[in-house]
Amino acid sequence: MKFSFGSDQLALAETLAEVLAKRCPPELVRAVWQSESGYSEELWEALGELGVLAVAVPEAYGGLGMNQVDLVKLLEESGRAAAPVPLLEHAGVGVPALAETTATELAEHWLPLAAAGEVIVTAAVPGSEHQGDGNTVVSLVSYAAQADLAILSCQGELFAVEQQNYQVQELESVDGSRRLGWVEWSPQDAFGLPGASSESVFERGVLAAAAQSIGVADHLLETTVAYVKEREQFGKPVGSYQAVKHHLADVAKAMGFARPSVYAAAWAVSQDTEKLTQQEQQKFVSAAKSLASDAADLAARKCLQCHGAIGYTYESDLHLWLKRAWSLSASWGDAHWHRRRLAGLLGI
């Protein structure tokens, strides 16, 4: 077992970081918050060109045929930039589900398009759906109005639903780049996804949210450290005061411990269940998400505090990341939910 990334993996993450630093400034995130489209088409195109959207697509379908270990640092980078695109849903969850299904016609049609970024595939938390009117099912889906295909579940079965076959009732999230909606659909108008499991969809979604969370928290810490070095009160930088130092040391510690666990979880979910049972994989994933969510929540709270009043304004960019942190830590099961699941897995 290796405990570090390969040079290819690091190089792709670095390239993505550079592209995001250049093409995804806070102004872009703000603009997308106000936009009709709900995501940055330009950035999406750039990610497609870079190959980021093709990572989990099998080579046979024009992808890179890589796995969650290859993906985890890319998701982390997208979190760091608060990138206003459906990367988690598409690359982290939707594409791997399509890659897994034995419904090859569906995969043949959608995966090459998904790899190039010509379509958006989204996914919902399996089991979160409820019964709608008549034969319909209602699912809470992010980027539903933007997506071309949604991977949804009904009674434990997975389905792929094309946009023309679902109705979206848009909702408003505190995080303006997270476009949520109630989606009403019917399994009769959907493709089955034999071979893809709702359990795997869930684990991958949790992992992707954890990976983005640590990127978000990292950015929060970095910008706050820069701020407290500059900002002076009582004739000294506020970062020289022990109370401020200890807040940020706690964030650094939480981050330092969450990150390796997130990477370990990425390794775990890319293992064959014959090598690492599903239950064992779930332990890794829940440990990672609980640590990452807690770290992101702590970062959000402490970094706002260390910014003082300026951080509480809409004008400051800080809130873009605070809200990203909140929405990620609440989605795909929050820290409490994952500790609860772990309690069951540990037999207590």
Binding site: G127, A330, W332
Partner: peptide
């Protein structure tokens, strides 16, 4: 808990 309750929150 089933994974769906992850999204409902109250279970937590």
């Amino acid at each position: 808990p089933d994974s769906g309750s992850a999204a409902r929150g109250a279970a937590s």
